[in-house]
């Protein structure tokens, strides 16, 4: 076997699932970051986190394609519109629903966030229907990361969504780190999450910080939705919530220890990569093999180390 073929076969057996897994994992990691943010800020499990992404992706695609009343605008503007949508949805959720449930049991709050997700899903269905496909336009040549396997043809290297996803994710992670460790806002969010009363005493406006946290979570969800949309093909209402990113994001957040930002992102990546390999190598006779493997991973991790991989909380 020639070296070229070995490389190609290594590429298709190891490399392709790895790259696919990393791309999916980046999306899960972004969802997980939003989940961890809101969990840290108010001990809330936000089941609408991924749906912020679906709605934002729809707004972005509408602007990209010029669908319905939306004018066709350049891609960066369309993306910004999507991010604003996410932030706005986070803000409205917090103001209209979450603040009213201040004293409610946590199960009720959780149900309320799930209700927000269901509301957005049906709103999307009413506005867009499920039959009309909304697809992101192609960017560059392949949407594959040409590392091992896909270089064997004579394609010249072209950037695609894979690279965009990776770069965007890295930017978001770096931005979050800068926000939390370099700015007053970030510090205030962390302070409120750890000691709300004390934070109020030292002059932090707990109310506006809470709203800001939800805006930030909404934007994070929007990034996840927008980078995931090109890989989804035809967008359907609720694709972020019902097709995996929400649940895998939660699993990632838990694996990472629910209160750790790095842990959440690494956890999301791990879920993406593991399920990618499992999807490739689990026998076809076992339906849903990838999900079963991820479920086993979660269960095993929690039984061995109940605080997650990077969790600090006792």
């Amino acid at each position: 076997m020639s070296a070229h073929l070995v490389l190609a076969s290594v590429g298709s057996t190891v490399g392709t699932p790895l790259v696919g897994g990393i791309v999916n994992g980046a999306v899960y990691g972004l969802v997980a970051l939003g989940i961890v943010l809101l969990y840290k800020a108010g001990r809330i499990f936000n089941f609408a986190q991924a749906e912020f992404g679906t709605a934002s992706a729809f707004v972005t695609v509408a602007f990209l394609q010029g669908i319905g009343p939306f004018p066709k605008v350049p891609a960066p503007l369309a993306v910004v519109a999507g991010l604003i949508t996410g932030g706005l949805l986070g803000f409205l959720s917090e103001r209209l629903i979450i603040t009213r449930l201040f004293r409610a049991p946590r199960a009720t709050v959780l149900v309320a966030t799930a209700g927000i997700a269901l509301f957005l899903i049906s709103l999307e269905a009413v506005l867009l229907g499920v039959s009309t496909p909304h697809v992101f336009p192609r960017v560059g040549g392949q949407s594959h990361f040409a590392l091992f396997g896909t270089l064997q043809s004579n394609d010249s290297y072209k950037f695609g969504y894979t690279e965009i996803t990776m770069v965007a994710t890295l930017l978001v992670v770096a931005g979050l780190a800068a926000l939390f460790f370099r700015t007053r806002y970030g510090m205030a969010i962390l302070a409120v999450s750890q000691e709300p009363t004390a934070a109020g005493v030292v002059g932090i406006n707990v109310r506006s910080i809470s709203a800001l946290t939800w805006v930030l979570a909404g934007v994070l969800g929007a990034v996840a939705g927008i980078v995931n949309a090109p890989f989804t093909g035809a967008l359907t209402p609720g694709f972020m919530t019902l097709n995996g990113p929400l649940i895998n994001g939660f699993i990632g957040a838990i694996l990472g220890g629910i209160t750790s930002f790095p842990g959440a992102f690494v956890g999301g990546l791990l879920v993406g990569v593991v399920s990618s390999y499992a999807g490739q190598y689990m026998p076809a006779a076992v339906p849903g093999g990838a999900t079963v493997v991820v479920a086993a991973l979660l269960l095993f991790t929690l039984l061995v180390r109940p605080t997650g991989l990077l969790g600090q909380e006792v």
Binding site: L96, I97, R100, L101, A104, T108, V111, A112, G115, I116, L118, F119, I121, S122, L123, A125, V126, L127, L128, G129
Partner: peptide, 21 residues
């Protein structure tokens, strides 16, 4: 057409949120 098909879900979710709020 969409409203006829998915409107009930929308209203259902809305009722839920209003009830809780």
């Amino acid at each position: 057409t969409n409203a006829q098909q998915f409107g009930p879900d929308l209203i259902g979710a809305l009722l839920l949120l209003v009830t809780l709020a």
